[in-house]
Amino acid sequence: MTERAPSGPETTVVCRCEGVTLEELAQASSRYRVASLRQLKLVSRAGMGICQARVCAPALEALARGWGLAAGSGELRTRPPIRPVDLATLAGGEEG
């Protein structure tokens, strides 16, 4: 899909945690006929890594706008825990 062609160099890494490049996003977007930012995230894993899109959200949202995707404000919502924690902490110290 030509309107989804990336404008930057194709090796630009958009989501560093998951190592997703601009080229991969463009490919996933046209292959699955992505219609929304949430769907783009689901098919590419962009924004699903350790920082939970805290770093790449602005870039993803800009891309989504550029590609004419539906991009509501909650689409990259961070889910709890808000910051990464280790499993022992999540388990609350003592083990049951």
Binding site: Q52, P81, V85
Partner: peptide, 8 residues
């Protein structure tokens, strides 16, 4: 124990 959790 030390595994990192990113979300639930």
């Amino acid at each position: 124990r030390a595994a990192t959790v990113v979300r639930t």
